[in-house]
């Protein structure tokens, strides 16, 4: 019986012809748009997480403290909420780092009459500290230290990145939803055409007492088939785009976002897209059923 019902659903798809093809293409387009935005958003999110892990707040000190005072200062800062770790950087270490950065031009630093670089504290944040409010509160507390000359760093730009990521997700959902609605309407039209083409069959089925499930299921199945085919095509489009554009974009992404390579959608997202496509198609078929019942 199930084989018969699937056979009827495939027969219906062939009957719907161009409208079914249009419905499949619209589902492909809507899911490719949604998946594309998800893909970009996932990579931006990864960049935001990457940078959030590496965020530091630097407290430049007025004077270089003695070893004991530096140790006591580190302990005080460590006790502040939102602080994960504190490293004391002496003036000499700061100069050493500068020389390393300058490389072959390090001799410039040696010609300086005195070490102009201040001693500092490099503060790493806890997860709680990496929220915009947490970071702002900590910066205020660090600025209040009598030893502090200036406090640098923050996470505002990372938050802007994260906000951008959320915006991308919303836009993706919006564009996907609009296209999905168009897809549903097209599937409904395709199914209505099938219903029209099948009206004699439906009449005969009802006349001989076929169970309602047998009458309806092929319609639902053909909608779901359209959705599944559209989803598979959308994923294929995304794979092709990722394969072609990925390697070309990676150098740019590496420089701007610090990501070594772009990642594709996670397997569960791919499955979710296929499920969404199947449900979209099924919903279209179900709506057509409602229309005929009215």
């Amino acid at each position: 019986m199930l084989g018969f019902l699937f056979g009827e659903a495939l027969r219906d798809l062939r009957r719907a012809g161009r409208v079914a093809v249009a419905a499949i293409l619209l589902i492909t387009l809507s899911l490719a748009a949604l998946g594309g935005f998800w893909l970009v958003s996932a990579n931006v999110g990864q960049a935001a997480a990457h940078w959030r892990d590496r965020v530091r707040i630097i407290v430049y000190l007025k004077r270089e403290p003695s070893a004991d005072d530096a140790h006591a200062l580190v302990e005080r800062v460590l006790a502040m909420p939102g602080v994960g770790a504190v490293r004391y950087v002496s003036k000499a270490e700061a100069l050493g780092t500068l020389k390393q950065v300058l490389g072959k031009d390090a001799s410039v630093a040696e010609q300086l009459p005195a070490n102009p670089l201040p001693a500092s504290l490099e503060v790493t944040l806890t997860a709680e500290g990496t929220t915009p409010e947490g970071a702002r509160g900590l910066i205020a507390r660090l600025s209040g230290l009598s030893e502090a000359d200036e406090v640098g760093g923050g996470i505002d730009w990372i938050e802007r990145l994260a906000r951008g990521q959320r915006l991308l997700e919303v836009i993706g959902l919006g564009v996907g939803a609009v296209l999905a609605m168009a897809a549903i309407l097209t599937v409904t039209t395709a199914t209505t055409l099938v219903l029209h083409a099948r009206r004699q069959e439906l009449e005969i089925m009802r006349l001989v007492g076929a169970p309602e499930l047998v009458v309806r299921l092929p319609l639902l199945l053909q909608g779901m088939l359209q959705g599944l085919v559209g989803a598979v095509m959308a994923i294929w489009v995304l794979i092709v785009l990722y394969t072609i554009a990925g390697p070309r974009l990676e150098p740019l992404v590496s420089q701007t976002l610090g990501l070594e390579r772009l990642t594709f959608l996670r397997p569960q997202t791919v499955v979710a897209l296929m499920f969404a496509g199947t449900m979209l198609g099924g919903f279209g078929g179900w709506l057509a059923r409602g229309r005929t019942e009215r």
């Binding site: 004699q200 007492g209 169970p211």
Partner: peptide
């Protein structure tokens, strides 16, 4: 009820003036 209508019809054969064959 709808389900019972289907049951009834399973025991009835109907033919019409136009044969209503599926083309």
């Amino acid at each position: 009820r709808v389900r019972e209508v289907a049951e009834l019809r399973r025991s009835i054969g109907v033919v019409f003036q136009d044969a209503k064959l599926l083309p």
